[in-house]
């Protein structure tokens, strides 16, 4: 009997794609992984529509309306949702803007920035509206697993995915858990 491959989706919200780079750092282990899983929507596949998935890996926090939409869609379609990296867990570097009013942040960049011509805050309707504050994922939807790190190392991700796929309790070693 051929076992159906597990479907995994990934996305980067208010992140820097560093966690996805860490995922690619799995190197040759990716071949092994593709034997056991199939990528659905992900920056690595360019599939636009999220299908029904077993696991969703999410990098980055929630900083705008589109992030909220994508995150809720992932929650609705993924059986297991995993927050990966510092930004997904606590907002991370993008959440440092929470120290300021949104207006202050935008004005600092787009009005008072150096060398601006026709300085104005962008208001194209295609640009998702920013939230007043950046939030970690667990403040918006239920998250099943958390992988800290900025980014979590490829070894951490490898251990996690392997133990998840084999139905084992997730046991990360001391050096596989770090917040930086």
């Amino acid at each position: 009997m051929i076992e159906a491959k597990l479907k995994i989706a990934t996305c980067s919200l208010a992140g820097c794609f560093g966690c996805h780079m860490s995922l690619l750092d799995l190197d040759e282990r990716l071949f092994d992984l593709t034997e056991r899983m199939e990528l659905d929507r992900s920056p690595l596949t360019d599939i636009k529509e999220l299908g029904e998935c077993d696991v969703g890996l999410i990098e980055g926090g929630v900083c705008n309306a589109e992030n909220v939409h994508v995150l809720m869609e992932f929650r609705a379609r993924c059986k297991i949702l995993v927050a990966i990296g510092a930004c997904a867990l606590n907002g991370g570097i993008p959440a440092m803007r929470n120290q300021f009013d949104l207006k202050e942040c935008l004005e600092e960049s787009y009005v008072r920035g150096i060398g601006l011509v026709n300085a104005q805050i962008p208001n194209d309707p295609e640009i998702p509206l920013l939230l007043n504050k950046v939030h970690p994922l667990h403040e918006v939807v239920k998250i099943d697993y958390f992988l800290p790190g900025c980014p979590p190392s490829a070894d951490t991700i490898w251990t996690f995915i392997n133990e998840l796929l084999s139905g084992q309790p997730i046991a990360l070693s001391y050096t596989q858990i770090h917040y930086d």
Binding site: A83, A86, L89, N90, G92, I93, A95, M96, P136, H138, I143, F146, L147, P148, C150, Y174, I177, H178, Y179, D180
Partner: peptide, 26 residues
């Protein structure tokens, strides 16, 4: 506590105790 942006990270007692007690999320 933005560990990636903190120069104390890695030699921080708060962080180390959080590791010790198995804190994976806030």
């Amino acid at each position: 506590h933005v560990c990636p942006a903190c120069e104390k990270s890695g030699a921080c007692q708060l962080q180390a105790v959080a590791y010790y007690v198995g804190m994976l999320n806030p």
